[in-house]
């Protein structure tokens, strides 16, 4: 029996799913610093439980992110961390980090979309992110957010409607 080091396994998995997880964490957390902490903690927890199989469902990490975000909001960890790492907190201010990457040719369009998404309510944002970028089904979204499947679908439709409405009001 031999155990071989494969330090690239989790990195490969994280390279594939990390950006969408981070996006959801940013949406759930109150600032980018907390989002990274939450993502790290959620991923490490899930990977320690199921990582030995080499593949874990992203939905598990989404669920962990959601629960940790609630915990973070309840506890005063955010403040402690901010005090502990004041330098980083100064660097990363709330809302200053872009959620999406933008290419030069479509930069303006992407910024408008991101601004529109940020104007959505938190409930609509989370459903939209899990559906569009998380690539989860409504059933998985329901499990992640602990809401009924139809509620998830309904929120998604409303989110798109609101988003369209916001975009139509924006100057072109």
């Amino acid at each position: 029996m031999s155990l071989i080091k494969k330090d690239t396994m989790w990195k490969e998995w994280f390279a594939q799913h990390g950006p969408r997880l981070l996006l959801f964490a940013r949406q759930q957390a109150r600032n980018d610093y907390d989002a990274e902490d939450i993502l790290q903690e959620a991923f490490v927890r899930i990977w320690r439980l199921y990582g030995h199989t080499g593949e874990i469902a992203p939905g598990l990490v989404f669920q962990a992110i959601r629960r940790l975000s609630i915990d973070y909001a309840r506890r005063d960890i955010r403040r402690q961390h901010r005090e502990k790492k004041a330098d980083e907190a100064d660097r990363i201010e709330c809302g200053s980090v872009q959620w999406f990457e933008s290419s030069l040719e479509k930069k303006e369009c992407h910024i408008q979309l991101e601004e529109a998404i940020r104007q959505l309510s938190s409930k609509h944002q989370e459903v939209l992110m899990l559906k569009i970028w998380g690539e989860l089904t409504f059933e998985e979204i329901g499990k992640t957010l602990e809401i009924p499947l139809h509620t998830a679908a309904s929120r998604y439709r409303h989110a798109l409607t609101y988003l369209k409405s916001i975009l139509s009001r924006q100057p072109k």
């Binding site: 990390g18 950006p19 969408r20 981070l22 996006l23 990274e36 993502l39 980090v97 872009q98 959620w99 999406f100 990457e101 933008s102 479509k106 369009c109 992407h110 979309l113 991101e114 939209l128 569009i132 970028w133 798109l160 988003l163 369209k164 975009l167």
Partner: peptide
């Protein structure tokens, strides 16, 4: 709108 949203790529981690 969905297609447009899917064109957005989430930011990578640091």
């Amino acid at each position: 709108l969905e297609k447009e949203l899917m064109g957005l790529s989430p930011s990578r981690t640091g």
